[in-house]
């Protein structure tokens, strides 16, 4: 292990680190928004929209991100839609993540008991109020474990962006290895960099899970 090589590569890795962080953040926030909307549409069985989103969830969950990215990056320009690699990456990640998040939220919403819904309805709530005051707060707490798993999954999934040459962490490492043939050093930095992102995220999500389990819940 040659520490000077590591040192020299650090500026590159810092760039990659920032990009991975940024892409993850945008991807996760976008996925959560798409996921909540999708699962609410499915939960309240909004006609037509529900069928469309069912198809979306199936397609997105059953095709690899790699293929989705190739499609966005190589096939869309043929149809006249040109996007930067980063835009393709973010769209791809949200497309995939939205479907996974939707599944997680749907699980949470379905976990809200019929008794709770009856209680809300008996108090005169309309569908919107039922969603806002009963289904969402309780369903979201119930979906925190799935949400946590999906967040970790999406962060890891950003590594696939390297195939369309987005200079995030994995791409940076592969590039450096290709140029200087020093895989030990670069892979070591790569692992450390992912750990720096993932460990705090895991701890934070753990804390959140414990909080909603003992805090907002229990009858």
């Amino acid at each position: 292990m040659d520490w000077t090589i590591i040192q020299q590569s650090l500026p590159n890795f810092v760039q990659g680190f920032k990009l991975t962080l940024w892409l993850s953040l945008v991807g996760i926030v976008g996925s959560i928004i798409v996921g909540i909307i999708t699962s609410l549409v499915q939960y309240f069985r909004v006609p037509v929209l529900k069928q469309i989103l069912n198809v979306y969830v199936e397609v997105a969950r059953n095709t690899p991100l790699l293929i989705q990215l190739f499609f966005l990056y190589y096939a869309f320009p043929v149809m006249g839609i040109k996007m930067t690699a980063e835009t393709c990456g973010i769209i791809g990640l949200i497309f995939l993540g939205g479907a996974y998040m939707a599944e997680g939220f749907t699980g949470g919403f379905n976990g809200v008991s019929q008794n709770q819904l009856d209680a809300g309805e008996a108090l005169g709530m309309n569908q919107f109020q039922l969603a806002r005051y009963v289904v969402l707060p309780q369903g979201l707490s119930l979906s925190v474990p799935a949400l946590a798993a999906n967040i970790i999954f999406l962060i890891k999934e950003t590594s696939i962006f390297s195939v369309i040459a987005i200079p995030e962490l994995t791409n940076t490492a592969l590039d450096l290895i290709g140029m200087y043939y020093r895989s030990n050093e670069y892979l070591f930095v790569l692992v450390v960099a992912y750990a720096i992102i993932l460990i705090p995220v895991i701890l934070l999500l753990d804390w959140l899970e414990r909080r909603v389990r003992y805090g907002a819940f229990g009858n």
Partner: peptide
């Protein structure tokens, strides 16, 4: 209809065996 019942339920209170308070 759902809409009519939703209005009427504001005048009809109901209490269940399982209390069903909102836990949050």
């Amino acid at each position: 209809t759902p809409k009519e019942w939703q209005k009427l339920r504001q005048q009809i209170g109901m209490v269940f065996q399982s209390y069903d308070l909102f836990p949050n």
